[in-house]
């Protein structure tokens, strides 16, 4: 691969990294797992003047569950760490279902969840998962830290609201108030393929009633889609054939797919509704069953 010429920096602290990004004045790029950025450099779709490699930053590779059930994923936690995690398998069915479906095993060894969110690819799997879960990221810049809901992070395809000198430190999934359920289904043409369609659903139930629901859609719009109305249709009672059918229909309406070599818009809409139904129908015994 023959990218354009760039300066390479490998800072040892978050502060140093942010200072370099600031110095770069918008012409510097963070290098995390490199699984999206390096292909872009290779194709010369991106020609940054400086790469700030964050792989040497200490203490950012964590995946932990706080006492209250909050899940925290550090900026250097790899897809593979999430896939192998017993914590997720026990606590978070949507993430556990998605982890083995992101890219292929080789990419998963390097790529990061936080990097995937920052990349804002409408076909990225983690953004819809985090939207379904109501997650946020913590970003740090020269002026300190702020929280950004993943639903608000994406401005458009490959664009986020992050300032050029802000580093995403971690992604956070809030503690559930009920029993967490849900799943992730992805239609891919091959392992390692981006989603033709991906559907992430996260619900919380309490006393048999759905008290929180989120649905995120991958690959069927210019950005990851937050299917708010579809999720709303599930609230306030138990999951029934009717609520599931309603949610499937609304999710399909929320999708804005386009026809391309992966299939027609009609087909992709249909898959959205099929997947919503399949995930919700398997909720009670969803553990490890998705996909």
């Amino acid at each position: 691969m023959y990218p354009s010429r760039f300066r390479y920096e490998a800072p040892r602290s978050v502060e140093e990294a942010i200072a370099l990004l600031h110095q770069g004045g918008g012409e510097a790029k963070v290098l995390a797992g490199g699984q999206s950025l390096v292909p872009m450099l290779k194709l010369r779709f991106a020609s940054p003047e400086m790469l700030v490699d964050i792989n040497n930053l200490p203490g950012l590779d964590y995946l932990r569950v706080d006492a209250d059930g909050t899940i925290r994923i550090g900026a250097l936690c790899r897809h593979a760490d999430l896939e192998k995690s017993t914590l997720l398998a026990a606590h978070q069915p949507t993430m556990a279902a998605a982890a083995p479906l992101v890219a292929d095993p080789i990419v998963r060894n390097r790529g990061t969840l936080v990097g995937s969110l920052c990349h804002a690819d409408p076909q990225g799997d983690w953004a819809s998962v985090m939207i379904a879960l109501g997650g946020h990221i913590v970003a740090q810049g020269p002026k300190g830290r702020r929280k950004i809901a993943v639903a608000d992070l994406m401005k458009g395809p490959f664009q986020t609201v992050l300032a050029y000198d802000e580093l995403a430190i971690e992604a956070v999934v809030p503690a559930p108030k009920g029993v967490a359920g849900g799943g992730y289904l992805k239609l891919e043409r091959r392992v390692g393929d981006f989603a033709t369609v991906g559907v992430a659903i996260a619900i919380e139930t309490s006393a048999g009633s759905v008290i929180r629901a989120g649905i995120g859609l991958t690959g069927v719009g210019g950005s990851t889609i937050n299917a708010v109305d579809a999720a709303g249709a599930l609230l306030g009672g138990p999951l029934t054939a009717d609520t599931i059918a309603r949610a499937s229909e609304l999710a399909a309406q929320a999708a804005q797919p386009r026809s391309d070599h992966r299939g027609s818009a009609t087909y992709k809409r249909h898959i959205v509704s099929t997947f919503v139904t399949r995930i919700l129908t398997s909720v009670p015994d969803s553990k490890g069953k998705a996909a």
């Binding site: 292929d104 392992v191 390692g192 393929d193 981006f194």
Partner: peptide, 16 residues
């Protein structure tokens, strides 16, 4: 050309 790289020109792997 739709199929100018391995994201679009799909070669099967050992997985599938």
């Amino acid at each position: 050309c739709v199929g100018s790289n391995f994201m679009d020109y799909l070669l099967p792997t050992a997985w599938e």
